[in-house]
Structures are given as structure tokens and as C-alpha cells.
Design a protein around this nucleic acid. Structure first.
Length: 574
DNA sequence: CCTCGAATAT
DNA sequence: AATATTCGAG
């Protein structure tokens, strides 16, 4: 095996050779051993050799370094015994041999020494005596480095490893594209290795595939792998600031399949999950919605991750262009809320992806994401709104009006609607579909009442929520005198499927409103008339005048009706 | 070349 | 079903 030390392009000669020779990777892995203690060194060597590693031992870093630089020999991994007292040589070695995955080992646990070494790029710090398992698994560092070191930083000595692995994974050297699917199967044949180098674009700062892991033969379950492989989630540095400033949380699809560990940290508003196109099982599907509404961590550093996505960087020669990874944005209620707010702020006409994006100020979110969401948003709006809106707004087709009409329930929704007529605290009506506790009372302060579906918290914010719930939701249980509020939401009824075929009142259960029959009737009539403007007026007479309605309302103690509500009332009845 | 938005893919 | 991606139009 040679090392391609100076080939600009990896000579296929070498590669092929390596592949041939390396059927039984990691056997034959070249280990550079540095240990001042000859006894310890001998022991290590024998252990390593027993595991079919090729060992070159040195008793000091200088010799080792010169061996490395002489190029007469190459190594895949180095193991250095650290002398806590004089670790200078070691540190020097680490610096000099950055490209080489270097494992430290020491008798004592000197944290600062460990830190230094790790900081300088050591991939792992082992306590002596080193267990066989750990020793046996040193190859993982090699593979890891081979795949994760950014292009040029890949040590020449590691290329063969990479090639070998790639070949075994059938990732293809030149035609990575075509082999995507194949890789699914292949993956199981080998240690799970991430075929996507750009994952950690960094180069040297990737966390090591830490310790013990299972022996090769035993690596049966991905899950187990995950245990030890934790902490790839570099980008999950959390900083909870205010709820407003959220950033995208990226779950880095790590090499080793489905590491739930990586996806464990839910919290950000945006949840972007990355999935490997090769579907390596790493598609950590995660539900962002924090169970108890406790999102305390938003993560940053994600933009980097995103950059990474966008740039399927022509990583090295191998063409292991580890498949572009797409990020999937989880439109949580919070995120959606921002979206809606942005849209509101802009108004329908101005609400274009790029502007929405600006207003949302969500780090990591792309215009595409917004566009996609906007598309959905609009689509639903179109399906849900037109029927009733066109009734209520005389000239729906008039673009001018559309854009200028502040009350048109397009997307924007004036804030003053928000808490209007809301029951006092403690009386808040929680629709059955709304998980109690998931949302603070303030929930009603955003979103448009015109689109109940769009203000649903959590997963339920989509459109369907009010099937069959209308009556209960808008009925009186908690807000018996909600005529006023009803008048604010006249549009919600039309799409209530079960109501459509129903004649007035039949499907409404006014259980809690039966104390005052007269009032009940008025209430009911008003509501229904409002809700179903397309039906003949219930009284079978003439449309009540606005005044009479208002009178009726005031009889019920509802004297303060927002101006626009009045307007609507008259619209409805005229 | 960029953005939008609809269509289409995953 | 929800998002991402693609693609034609402006």
C-alpha cells in the first residue's frame, strides 16, 4: 500500500491496489505507536498486531515525526502515550501530524493535558490500560477522518481507507449518483460510515467517533452505535434568548444510521432535518413541537449547516459527493406564527417569499422554504375563503379593493381583533383539539380568526381542525355571550362541512345557553345568520336592520361592538 | 441571473 | 400530507 503522498490526483494504481489488498479492512491498518515506556509499547504492539494491525513503534515523537515526513512510510492512525509531565513533544506531534488521526493514551487523567491534546486535534483520549475493544476500534477514527476531513486535509494515507470503504459501500468512485440506492443495502455490510464528507465541513474539528464501540463483528444494531457516536450535533449549541429570535435547528444527519441521539434536542423553532438521499436510515424524523411548549433552546450555527447543504462541495476526488442533503423545515406553530405575522404585516399583495423571509428573521430559513409554505398557505386560503368572502365582499375580483381593503380576511388580520371578546383569563375556551397547556392564553393574539386552521397550535394548526367542532367551538359553553365575537368570525362557518347541509340550528347544541330562552334564540339566530349568510334568513321575514340587531345585542348586555363588527353586521344583513 | 408561483417529486 | 424541488414566465 502506498500513500499517494504527492499525487495531485490519486493515482488509481494505488487505489486499486489498496482496494484489492484491503478486503479485510481494517486489517493491515498502519498504526504509528509512540510510547516512551518500552514495556507498555511492547504490550501495545503485541495487542495491535494480534488484531492484524501493522505497528511501527517509536519511543519519541521526533523519531516518529521524521518517519512520517520521510514519506518512506505512511500511517493511518497514531497512538501516543502521553507523559503528563512533559507533553510538549506530544503536542508538537499533534500539531505536526494533524492529518493523522491521533489517539492519545495516558496513565493519569490530567484534564488539562487531555484538553490540550483534544484541542490540538487528538481524536480520542484513552486511559491506560487500554482495553482491547478500544484498541480494536481505532480504525473507526481512521475512517472517520478519512470521510470527514475536508478535501485537501485528507491525509494521503487515509485516502486508501476512504477508497476502500467507498468501494465496499458501493458508493462508487466516479458515479456516486448511480449508486445511491445500492448503498442502502451495502451499508449494512460495513461499519456504518457516513458517505458524506461535507457533513462536517470543518476538517479537524469533528468530534471523534468516540470510544469503545462494538467490535466489528458485533456491530449489529445501529442503535448501539449511536450510543457512542454521540455528539455530532455540533451545531446544537443552544442559546435561548427570547422567544422571538429563533434560529433554525439543524439536526445533522450523522453518518451512523438513525442516531436518535442527534435528534434528541428539540427546541428550536425551526426544525430542519436533513436526510440523506441515500436514505441511510439516518433520517431522524423529529417532531419539533416541544411537548409542553417548553422550547428553551434555539440553536445557532445552523446557517453553516445550511451552507453545507447548498454547496454539495466538490469534495475530493472520490466523487463521493455524498448526495445532496435536503433540509426539511418543520413549520411549527411558532414558525408559522411568524410566517403569518409577516404575511399580515406585508399584506396579501406584498407577501412574497423574499419579504416574508425578511420579516420572519428566522435564521436558516430559506426563501424556498417560505415560498413552499406560502404556496400551501395560499392554496388553502383559496379553497377555504372564496365562497364566503365573495359573498361578503362585493367585489372580490377587484384587485384594487383586494389589496386595499383592510378588513378583507385575506391574510392580514388586524391585531385589534385578537383579544377582543376573549373571555377573561381562566375562561379561555380550549377547543377539544387543542392540547391543553401547549399553548399559552396568548395564543389568540396571533393568527387570523378567519383561518382557524392557521392558528392552531402544534401539529394541529393545519386546516382541518374544525370539522364537527364548529358548534361547540363557537357555541356558548364558555362564552355564552359571544355574539360579538361571532360577528367577527362570520366566515368560519361556511367551511364547516357538517353544517352545510344542516338547516339552521339543528346541529347546534346550546347546552349551556338554555337559561334564557329568549336570549338564546336571539343569540342563536344572530349567530347562524352570520354564519350562514347564504341561507335564507331564519325569521323568514326581512333582514333585520342593523339597528335592530344592535338593539338586540345591547339588550343582552353587549353594548360595545367594535365599529368594524357593526360594519360586518350590516354587510351581512343587507 | 433572479424571483415568483404552479406543478411535480419525495 | 407536508415539504422540497423543478421549471416556465416575467
Amino acid at each position: 500500500m502506498c500513500c499517494l503522498e504527492d499525487d495531485a490526483k490519486p493515482a488509481m494504481v494505488c487505489t486499486a491496489e489498496d482496494l484489492l489488498d484491503w478486503k479485510d479492512f481494517p486489517k493491515g491498518l498502519k498504526v504509528l505507536l509512540i510510547d516512551g515506556d518500552s514495556c507498555s509499547a511492547a504490550e501495545m504492539r503485541s495487542k495491535l498486531e494480534e488484531m492484524d494491525y501493522l505497528v511501527s513503534a517509536f519511543d519519541n515523537e521526533n523519531d516518529a515525526l521524521s518517519a512520517i515526513s520521510s514519506k518512506s512510510e505512511c500511517f493511518h492512525v497514531a497512538i501516543i502515550a502521553v507523559n503528563t509531565e512533559s507533553s510538549d513533544g506530544t503536542l508538537k506531534f499533534l500539531e505536526a501530524a494533524k492529518a493523522l488521526p491521533t489517539i492519545m493514551m495516558s496513565n493519569n487523567r490530567c484534564l488539562s493535558t487531555m484538553m490540550k491534546c483534544i484541542a490540538l486535534g487528538a481524536v480520542e483520549f484513552l486511559q491506560k490500560p487500554v482495553s482491547d475493544d478500544k484498541l480494536r476500534n481505532i480504525w473507526q477514527h481512521v475512517v472517520h477522518k478519512a470521510f470527514n476531513a475536508g478535501g485537501k486535509d485528507v491525509s494521503e494515507s487515509l485516502k486508501p481507507v476512504k477508497e476502500s470503504v467507498i468501494s465496499k459501500l458501493h458508493l462508487g468512485l466516479g458515479d456516486a449518483e448511480t449508486d445511491k440506492q445500492v448503498s442502502i443495502k451495502q451499508e449494512k455490510l460495513l461499519p456504518d460510515i457516513d458517505p458524506s464528507p461535507e457533513l462536517l465541513s470543518g476538517s479537524d474539528k469533528y468530534p471523534a467517533p468516540s470510544t469503545p464501540q462494538l467490535k466489528q463483528g458485533e456491530r449489529s444494531s445501529n442503535h448501539e452505535d449511536c450510543q457512542d457516536q454521540a455528539n455530532f450535533s455540533v451545531e446544537q449549541d443552544n442559546c435561548e434568548l427570547d422567544g422571538e429570535y429563533k434560529s433554525v435547528e439543524t439536526t445533522c444527519g450523522i453518518s451512523l444510521s438513525d442516531c436518535s441521539a442527534f435528534s434528541s434536542a428539540a427546541g428550536g423553532d425551526v426544525n430542519i432535518k436533513e436526510e440523506h438521499e441515500s436514505s441511510d436510515g439516518c433520517q431522524s424524523e423529529q417532531t419539533t413541537a416541544p411537548p409542553g411548549g417548553s422550547k428553551d433552546c434555539a440553536s445557532n450555527g445552523t446557517s453553516d449547516a445550511n451552507e453545507t447543504n447548498k454547496a454539495p462541495t466538490g469534495n475530493d476526488t472520490c466523487g463521493v459527493k455524498a448526495t445532496k442533503r435536503k433540509t426539511k423545515v418543520d413549520w411549527t406553530s411558532e414558525l408559522h406564527k411568524k410566517f403569518v405575522q409577516a404575511v399580515e404585516q406585508l399584506g396579501v399583495d406584498q407577501a412574497i417569499p423574499s419579504r416574508i423571509l425578511e420579516l420572519m428573521k428566522v435564521e436558516g430559513l430559506t426563501r424556498h422554504n417560505v415560498a413552499s409554505h406560502l404556496q400551501k398557505y395560499r392554496m388553502h386560503r383559496r379553497h377555504i375563503l372564496p365562497k364566503e368572502t365573495d359573498r361578503r365582499w362585493p367585489h372580490p375580483g377587484d384587485p384594487a379593493q383586494r389589496s386595499s381593503h383592510p378588513q378583507r380576511p385575506v391574510m392580514a388580520f388586524p391585531t385589534y381583533h385578537a383579544n377582543h371578546n376573549l373571555p377573561a383569563a381562566g375562561q379561555v375556551y380550549h377547543p377539544p383539539w387543542m392540547p391543553v397547556g401547549t399553548y399559552p392564553t396568548g395564543i389568540h393574539t396571533w393568527g387570523s380568526p378567519y383561518y382557524p386552521g392557521w392558528q392552531m397550535p402544534n401539529e394541529n394548526w393545519h386546516w382541518k381542525p374544525y370539522t364537527g367542532l364548529q358548534a361547540e367551538a363557537w357555541g356558548c359553553p364558555v362564552m355564552p355571550q359571544s355574539v360579538g365575537s361571532c360577528s367577527q368570525f362570520p366566515q368560519s362557518a361556511p367551511d364547516f362541512p357538517s353544517m352545510k347541509e344542516m338547516p339552521y340550528t339543528n346541529n347546534v347544541h346550546w347546552n349551556s345557553c338554555d337559561s334564557q330562552p329568549a336570549d338564546e334564540i336571539v343569540d342563536k339566530v344572530v349567530k347562524e345568520a352570520i354564519s350562514k349568510p347564504w341561507l335564507p334568513l331564519p325569521l323568514g321575514l326581512k333582514s333585520p336592520s342593523t339597528e335592530s340587531v344592535l338593539n338586540e345585542l345591547s339588550k343582552q348586555g353587549i353594548s360595545t361592538i367594535p365599529p368594524h363588527s357593526k360594519t360586518k353586521v350590516s354587510h351581512i344583513f343587507c
